[in-house]
Design a protein around this nucleic acid. Structure first.
Lengths: 228, 228
DNA sequence: GCAAAAGTGTTTTGTCTACACCCATGA
DNA sequence: TCATGGGTGTAGACAAAACACTTTTGC
């Protein structure tokens, strides 16, 4: 069994990363200017090819790290896009991943280096290949996942106000929520710690900062509860 | 741009199909004896390599058709398994699909031809590679999907009794359900048509057969309602 | 003192759950 | 006539949704 599969076709396998961020008002996606032909210079998801000696997940992690310099990013496999003609440059099967990062962790310097930019999800530029479709599906998955797992926290700064948290869920679900019902529900999950400190930027009275309880968070992440 | 990606690694890409059936009591998975080295002769999911000129989905459809002779099978992409050493025969990235078929449509002759066999999900034989893990994930996905979409019908014969339907959901969720609550819930979805005919096999009184309303079914399939 | 956001409870509504008896029929 | 599965309703618990006023403070 030296080469049991030798007659089979070999294909290029890529990963593409849909990176979401939240600026306090809107959900954003991080896009880059493509550096390769074909379609060089057009807006694209960050991607790369899977190497012989790395797993598909490792490839996605590597690509995310190259772009953001961040480790410990929330990342999840989305879907494998395998149409024959999806990439005019060759037969490339792409495995899409979606990632959630704290938008403030991704700074200006990195954006300059990679010619990358945040775009509001409803003001996306034209994108290469099937990347628009990938983003659409990632958005859908984020909605579903956020309703049963507390992954939204990966998009917020370490400390945040209830208003920011509510705003995030309103952005994810594309709806508006009742402040009282929202507060009650969140508190019933026992996932937040109230800090002594207040955010005075957005109001005169000031709103308390919260952090989330990582232990409880991880437990809920496994359990698939009804989140909101 | 004759060969823009020429320096990149090329990998074998396979599809593997987790095929579920329901015999009225238990969920089953359809397995085959592997025909290739390595691990020839051991139990395996039905799979095959993605060819140069077919999409990943087409490959899965082709593999399903080869094994079952059936078209119009419910099929859904599950996950891409991309570990470097998952297949000792080479670097193979496998895209897993799960499929639901009516168990009676898959007859003895086909089982003989392909050395295939139905196995109860809790009595699976040892399987090659990561196939056991694939089945585990498929089972999980089936549970989740069935709770928001009426896909369970793909596992039942065209006409079925309420008892059969309830038994199916009990098997999927691995729980027992209250007959009255179940009946009420199903009827409230307006998805069933009661036939004049009765099944007299399993009781003296006889139970009415039902068929499902394809229109309503397709609508619910899109909408993601709370099913059960 | 007033504008602007923060914070807090109650009532209503609907959904999910638990639970038990009569019916029709073939043997 | 009796054994077997088929079919049906109601009450209580719980969760979700609707809804408005008071508090704080910087200007």
């Amino acid at each position: 069994m030296a080469a049991p599969y030798q007659d089979q076709a070999r294909l290029l396998v890529a990963v593409d990363c849909i990176i979401f961020g939240f600026n306090g008002k809107e959900l954003k996606a991080l896009l880059v200017k493509r550096r390769l032909e074909p379609e060089m210079g057009r807006w694209s998801l960050m991607g790369g090819f899977v190497q012989q000696e790395e797993s598909v997940e490792q490839a996605a992690t590597r690509v995310l790290d190259q772009l953001t310099g961040l480790t410990d990013i929330y990342m999840e496999q989305l879907y494998c896009f395998g149409d024959v003609k999806r990439d005019p440059g060759g037969r490339v099967v792409s495995v899409a991943f979606f990632a959630l990062i704290k938008i403030d962790d991704y700074d200006e310097a990195l954006m300059m280096d990679h010619h990358s930019q945040w775009f509001s999800l409803n003001k996306l530029p034209p994108l290469v290949f099937d990347h628009k479709n990938m983003i659409r599906q990632a958005r859908q998955r984020l909605k579903e996942k956020a309703s049963t797992h507390p992954i939204g926290f990966a998009l917020l700064p370490l400390k945040f106000t209830l208003q920011q948290l509510q705003g995030l869920y309103e952005a994810i679900y594309e709806t508006s929520l009742d402040k009282r019902n929202f507060t009650r529900k969140i508190h019933s999950l026992n996932i937040l710690h109230k800090l002594g400190e207040k955010d005075k930027e957005s109001s005169k009275k000031g709103a308390f900062y919260y952090v989330f309880d990582r232990k409880k968070y991880e437990q809920l992440d496994k359990e698939a509860i009804q989140f909101l």
